[in-house]
C-alpha cells in the first residue's frame, strides 16, 4: 500500500514533470533551430505547406507496394502493437478514470476482458518486435541502447498491467504499484530516446512531404 501511494503520488508527479520538461525542451530545442529558406520555384499546383505535410503524414501510413514485401512484418507488427497500445492505454476503464482524474476529460471504455485480450496480443507483438530486432542483421547492426531501453519501458507497463489485472506474480496492489512505476519509467525515458517519434514522426514526415510536394514528387 505504501508503494502504491508512492507510485501514484510522488513518483507519478516526478515522472510527469520530467516528461513535460524533457519533451518541451527537446521539441522547442529542435523547432527553434535556424530555418533554411527554400526559395526554389514550386511546381504549379503545389499544395500549401500544411496540406502537403498532412498528406505526407497520411501517405506514410502505408508503404509503397514495392516496399511492402521487404517490410511486411515490420509494418503489420508495428500496426498491431501501436493499435494494441492505443487500445490498452486509452480504452481500459481504470486508465480512462486516471486520465479523468488528471485532466478532467473522459470517454467510454471497452470491457476489461477485451482490453486484457488486446494487451496480451500487444505484449506478444512487442516480443516479436524484439526478436526481429535481435535476429534481423540490419536491425541488429543499427540498434542502440536507446532501442532496447525504449522497448523495455514500453513492454514492462504492458506486462505488469496484464499481471495486475490477471493477478499473476504478486498481490494486486503491489502489481498495480509496479505497473504505475513502469509507466513512470516510460514517461521519464520518453523525452530522451526514440519514443519521441510519437511527436517527431509528424514533423519528420511533414518536412519531407513539404519538400517533395513542392517538387511535384511522391512522398
Amino acid at each position: 500500500m505504501e508503494l502504491l501511494q508512492f507510485s501514484r503520488g510522488p513518483a507519478l508527479t516526478f515522472a510527469i514533470a520530467v516528461f513535460l520538461l524533457g519533451t518541451l525542451w527537446r521539441l522547442i530545442g529542435i523547432l527553434m533551430l535556424e530555418r533554411r529558406r527554400v526559395d526554389a520555384e514550386a511546381r504549379p499546383g503545389t499544395p500549401t505547406p500544411l496540406a502537403a505535410a498532412a498528406s505526407g503524414v497520411l501517405a506514410k501510413m502505408w508503404p509503397h507496394k514495392t516496399f511492402l514485401k521487404s517490410s511486411l512484418f515490420s509494418v503489420l507488427n508495428g500496426y498491431v502493437f501501436h493499435i494494441g497500445l492505443a487500445i490498452s492505454v486509452l480504452l481500459f476503464a481504470p486508465h480512462v478514470l486516471f486520465v479523468k482524474s488528471l485532466l478532467g476529460i473522459s470517454w467510454p471504455a471497452l470491457p476489461s476482458n477485451v482490453v486484457l485480450a488486446v494487451a496480451v496480443i500487444t505484449a506478444g507483438s512487442l516480443l516479436a518486435s524484439l526478436v526481429h530486432r535481435l535476429t534481423n542483421p540490419v536491425q541488429r547492426l543499427i540498434s542502440r541502447i536507446d532501442d532496447y531501453v525504449s522497448w523495455a519501458v514500453t513492454f514492462l507497463p504492458v506486462l505488469t498491467g496484464i499481471a495486475a489485472v490477471a493477478h499473476i506474480g504478486g498481490r494486486y496492489e503491489t502489481l498495480l504499484a509496479v505497473h504505475i512505476l513502469t509507466v513512470c519509467a516510460f514517461l521519464i525515458w520518453f523525452p530522451f530516446g526514440k519514443l519521441m517519434h510519437a511527436f517527431l514522426f509528424v514533423l519528420s514526415r511533414g518536412t519531407t512531404a513539404i519538400r517533395f510536394k513542392q517538387r511535384g514528387a511522391e512522398v
Binding site: I30, L31, R35, V138, T207, R211
Partner: peptide
C-alpha cells in the same frame, strides 16, 4: 549545415531498418 528540418529528421529514426530493403546496394 544543420538546420531545423535536418534536426527533425535526424531525431526521428526508430531504427526499423526498412530503408535497407529499398537500397540497391543492400
Amino acid at each position: 549545415d544543420i538546420a531545423m528540418t535536418n534536426a527533425v529528421q535526424l531525431e526521428a529514426c526508430v531504427r526499423c531498418g526498412l530503408c535497407a530493403g529499398a537500397c540497391h546496394f543492400f
